[in-house]
Write a protein that binds this DNA or RNA. Structure first.
Lengths: 199, 199
DNA sequence: AGAGATTTGTAGTGTTCGCTACAAATGTGG
DNA sequence: CCACATTTGTAGCGAACACTACAAATCTCT
């Protein structure tokens, strides 16, 4: 028995296109017509490959998470908690204003509140944001064990704080804040980290 | 000539109901059917009073802004910049987890990214967020004139920072963060404010 | 080459969307 | 009580939505 006609498009490249559309317009603001045009495929190809609009979003999020994980690995690879925090904040400021992508972060712009039938989407995005926070927290747990953080510094609080700041930066980036503005915010945030870290 | 049949519903009460729906589902996730049911009116009444779905959102935002302005007046009324920052952050933590409202803030949950035809909505929300930031900044300008802030403290940066943090708290609240979590973030943020304020 | 498996493009499907035509209902001013 | 003005409820408008039936096309395997 044969193996069927091969797919004529590159799924990863198509996912990158879809990611951009979801990022720019949010899940609910994105239409299948926009997606198929951006991906240069027809609806049946989209549905055969990804199942549904939500399935496509999840596939795009998986791809997004891959890149993000690689990026986070670099960030938490820094030798001190201080450098981890600084790298996390500054790289976020740059990434959210990277002209190669829509402003902000897909995990926030994708949709914080959705309509009936898409309640799952905000959950999905939140779960992926939490993952980043978890990676930070684990790194800070290690830092504390290494006496790289003060006796009273709480890895949970530190990770949450940095996560909150970067989410806030997303919101500002989405409304046009430029790179320097975000870096300024990052720099101020870093002072709170320092204070908290030496506690 | 007569003055016509009087309106049978309270516009402000109806706006409060609409606000809740927009807040919970975002602009694009909200349908006219949900709105009319929540407001206990029929579509023609909605359109006669507010013009369109977007007109209704703006009216709801105006009402939201009224309440917020009253609240901000109280916050910036504090006697020191430090108290202003603390009040702003802590009251935000409480407001965003007030069980009387959906979690987060309408100006963020309403929609950061929207589809074609609703591009105006994120702008509108951003403009109202900026207004809060402006109120903070002006208060800090005054604080600086009063020597209540350090020589090198920048009111613009301080206001932006606080604004970013509260936006980040919105994102976390929308994904279930509880009041104590947000207060913790507020407390850490306040340390950065202190460091920056005495510069 | 032929059979089987899968993808592709065309052309829709039914549903839901934001919005409105219309006539009955209800108020005011003369 | 009678024009007049406005709101109300019913019912439904065209358009856009997510999604799919179907047949032609293109591959692999024998």
């Amino acid at each position: 028995m044969g193996m069927g006609r091969p797919r004529a498009f590159d799924a990863d490249a198509a996912l990158d296109r879809a990611m951009d559309v979801f990022w720019r317009h949010g899940y609910e603001g994105t239409t299948i017509a926009q997606l198929t045009e951006a991906m240069s495929i027809n609806p049946p190809s989209l549905y055969a490959a990804f199942g549904s609009k939500e399935g496509l979003l999840k596939a795009a999020l998986d791809r997004y998470s891959e890149k993000r994980d690689a990026w986070m690995e670099k960030v938490v690879g820094a030798s001190t908690a201080r450098e981890v925090a600084e790298g996390f904040l500054m790289e976020h400021a740059d990434a959210q204003t990277d002209p190669a992508n829509p402003p902000g972060c897909l995990l926030v712009q994708g949709g914080l509140a959705c309509g009936t039938g898409s309640e799952n989407v905000p959950f999905e995005l939140a779960a992926r944001r939490t993952r980043t926070e978890d990676q930070l927290r684990e790194r800070f747990v290690r830092a504390k064990a290494e006496r790289d953080l003060g006796e009273n510094a709480d890895p949970v609080t530190l990770a949450r704080y940095l996560s909150a700041v970067t989410s806030g930066m997303c919101v500002m980036a989405s409304s046009g804040a430029d790179r320097n503005t975000l870096r300024e915010i990052a720099a101020v945030s870093l002072k709170a980290f320092d204070e908290q870290a030496k506690a």
